[in-house]
Simulated assay, not measured.
Amino acid sequence: MTERFILLTGCSGGGKSTLLNTLAAQGVATVPEPGRRIISEEIAFGGTALPWVDMGAFARRAVEVARADLEAARHREGAVFFDRGLIDAAVALEYCGGAKVRDTFGATMPYARRVFVLPPWPALFVNDAERQHSFDAAVQEYQRIEQSLDDLGYQRYVLPKVTVEERAEIILRECGL
């Protein structure tokens, strides 16, 4: 486990990327969500590793990108905040018939034990070119992520539905930054 690798996870459309951008603006190291990067590349190059076309290919690619993100972060100093990551990718992979979550990364806990979770928040959820699923599907994914975090022994810190600035303050305070 790497205590300086801090995972932001939770419901799709719950404000993770906005929160990560706010943390980055305050000078902390951040890693953007693998899924959105993959979708942008696939759309730009006419690929099919998209969750609405080939969920298995998308999930396998998300695992690869998340692993590469973790490796790259090992060379950075101090705390590194991840918007989603290997656990989220592993949950997606298992959901579409791939390896079990724990089998994706073994006994190692890649992130700090305390994970910051952004709950479903209908007022924030919007569809766009990269998020084409329904809010109900997002909530179901959220529940799978929560269950996996519990099964893996992570401690969930569910962030309140407050402004992004307040959420950032909570995280920085809780992390001693």
Rank of each mutant, 00 (worst) to 15 (best):
M1A: 14
T2F: 05
T2Q: 05
E3A: 15
I6D: 07
T9Q: 08
T9I: 11
T9M: 14
G10D: 09
C11P: 04
S12H: 14
S12A: 15
S12Y: 11
G14Q: 09
K16E: 01
K16H: 07
K16V: 11
K16P: 06
T18F: 14
L19Q: 09
L19S: 10
L19H: 12
L23I: 14
A25I: 08
A25S: 12
V28D: 01
A29Y: 08
A29W: 08
T30Y: 03
V31D: 01
P32E: 09
E33F: 10
P34W: 03
G35Q: 08
R36Y: 02
R36T: 02
R37D: 09
I38Y: 06
I38W: 10
I39P: 05
S40P: 01
E42Q: 15
A44R: 14
G46Y: 06
G47F: 12
T48V: 12
A49G: 04
L50I: 08
V53A: 13
M55R: 06
M55L: 01
M55D: 00
F58Y: 12
F58P: 03
F58D: 01
R60V: 01
R60M: 03
R61S: 10
R61H: 12
R61E: 08
A62L: 10
V63W: 04
E64I: 07
V65S: 01
V65Y: 03
R67S: 03
L70G: 00
A73Y: 06
R74A: 04
R74I: 00
R76S: 07
E77C: 00
E77I: 00
G78V: 05
A79V: 06
V80Y: 03
F81S: 02
F82T: 00
D83T: 00
D83F: 02
L86G: 00
L86I: 02
I87Q: 00
D88C: 01
A89Y: 01
A89C: 05
A90E: 03
L93F: 02
E94K: 08
E94G: 04
C96I: 01
G98I: 04
G98T: 04
V101W: 10
V101E: 04
V101Y: 07
D103W: 09
G106P: 09
G106I: 14
A112D: 05
R113D: 01
R114F: 07
F116Y: 13
F116I: 09
P119E: 03
P120S: 06
W121H: 04
W121A: 05
L124P: 05
V126A: 15
N127R: 15
E130C: 11
E130V: 13
H133S: 10
H133Y: 11
D136Y: 13
A137Y: 12
A138K: 13
A138R: 10
Q140L: 15
R144F: 06
Q147H: 13
S148Y: 09
L149G: 01
L149W: 06
D150Q: 15
D151N: 13
D151P: 05
L152A: 09
Y154K: 13
T163M: 09
E165D: 00
R167Q: 13
R167F: 08
A168P: 10
A168R: 15
E169W: 05
I171S: 08
I171Q: 06
R173L: 11
E174L: 14
E174S: 07
C175R: 14
G176Q: 15
L177T: 11
L177F: 15
